[in-house]
Design a protein around this nucleic acid. Sequence first.
DNA 1: GGCGGCGGTGATACACTGTAACACTCGCGC
DNA 2: GCGCGAGTGTTACAGTGTATCACCGCCGCC
Lengths: 161, 161
Amino acid sequence: MHRHEGHDACPGDAVDMLARAESLCRERGLQFTPLRRDVLEVVAASGKAQGAYDIAERLSVPGKRVAPVSVYRALDFLMEQGLVHRIASRNAFIPCAHVHAPGEGVIFLICRTCGGVDEESSQDLESGLGRTLERAGFTPAHSILEVEGDCGLCRDRKQAS
Amino acid sequence: MHRHEGHDACPGDAVDMLARAESLCRERGLQFTPLRRDVLEVVAASGKAQGAYDIAERLSVPGKRVAPVSVYRALDFLMEQGLVHRIASRNAFIPCAHVHAPGEGVIFLICRTCGGVDEESSQDLESGLGRTLERAGFTPAHSILEVEGDCGLCRDRKQAS
DNA sequence: GGCGGCGGTGATACACTGTAACACTCGCGC
DNA sequence: GCGCGAGTGTTACAGTGTATCACCGCCGCC
């Protein structure tokens, strides 16, 4: 479902994700609480972007309900630490597949067939964007780039049928 | 508030916008109804991105209320015709400042100080994106690129103070 | 003229997404 | 013990978007 090409780091699965998060929090003197851990686990376990309410439902068991607001707080924390990203066009969240260089731009490739989200970064694209912004006299603070289409696997599957 | 550089067409103000919309609808055999006209006018008149509920409120007068759902339908139509764009990161809508080449990509520069939105297109950026997508084996259908930051005017204003 | 279809609109209700405010607990330092 | 701050639970609410049905006006057709 995912393609990760040309990355420096590609932790990929949920276990690595949790280990990485834990060491990162320890390093920064922050709390990696059970709730935050659970939320990250749900986000990391599914290959698709998860809505906050989906996560809340997933974490709820009969007798122990997790409110969406708690999920949002955990997600805010995880986003601040760069462990998850928000997909604006879907109102959904995905685990961060990279270890990012500071200020590095990211592109999200969202497959409209399988729902999988791939995360790419491109120096080429980045410099093109920089030139365009400079030409427009605009000082960027934060940018989002999301492309919807068909991933390689889904395209092949379509052609085969 | 706006900067439009390197464009082929830059209608800019609301009157031109309405005239363009009307001729475009006639050309395509579509109805440019009063509601659609009013919605487009509100979107075009303000330099900032407008929420659907803002537009609904703006169009409502005592005794004659316009429901948000009607606004959404008009906006859907206007977006299909390429007359307005949706800013995903703001859940808001802006008039389309370009006459687009088919399939051409667009960048939105959103000023976090004045709230103005500028619309740029860049062949340079476009080709960089194309190369990145190809490298990832991804077939794009639709992309959104939104940059938040400070526009030239607001930056200058800040430095002056 | 009657009649049916179709696009657009009005209206209500509802689902989904996100935030504000307050109370409570727990761990920690004093 | 006591205060304090971070994290969480809970309720309520604001904001965003969609589903559904009813109605109206127009046009073509018999």
